[in-house]
Amino acid sequence: MKASSTCKHLKVALLFSLLLIFGFAVTVAVSDAESVTKTKAKTMVAAATQAAPAPAKKSEKAEAPKIDPTDTTSVIYLDTAGKPAGVGDPNKPPSMAYKAGRGWHPQALAAQGLPKDRYGLIDWARIVRENLVKPRFSLNPEDDEMPPLKMDVLITAKGDFVNDVIYPHEMHTFWLKCEICHATVGGPIFIPVKGSNDMSMVGIVQGQWCGRCHGKIAFPLTDCSRCHTSPKKAASK
């Protein structure tokens, strides 16, 4: 009598857990991690009240391979050398980090599908050109949106043998406000008057002008031909 009743109970429990698993699978498809944990908790509670919680638990684990952000062994938190990432020095330019063997999280990047330049760094300009992201203009919904400024500036290179630079305001104003460069705290990076910025590559390398961002958070200075694009007439050779 006792044995048959436990058998019946087991059968009912198994059926119930199967139903739960089915429901679980459907909810996972549409909801985020939070609801996953909720259903997990629910099934745990439901299973606890029943006689057979073991089979339900096992199938759950197989169905939901969620990445735990606190788990350092998770693939997404490894660098190119296979070590846990996130130890890079944010004060140094990315090319320095690359030399030191630090890189982007390859698995995480591959999953994002973001375009990369020839140095393997994320090509933010191409992301804009190909409309891959649409960031909000401001966190404040009352702020008036300002379209990017379509204005190219020809910056002549000082040396006779180097291509001139065509500076695109459009790409920069997509990401940045005017004030970031033209009304910076501690003096503007660029005076918004033509010819009044005595830029030089030597100064840029030392962290002035373009070097305030490029080589730090924007693409590194290593990529000369990305800016020096306009050929000089005098230097045909």
């Binding site: 040396g159 180097v162 031909s225 020096h228």
Partner: peptide, 30 residues
């Protein structure tokens, strides 16, 4: 040799030299 040609991957800026992680990059003037 000119910086333009170096940038284009010739002379010092050859793909295995000062245009690669093997040696210091071209922008380090000094």
């Amino acid at each position: 040799i000119s910086m333009k040609l170096n940038m284009e991957g010739k002379f010092c800026g050859s793909p295995n030299c000062h245009n690669s992680p093997k040696a210091f990059p071209l922008f380090q003037c000094a």
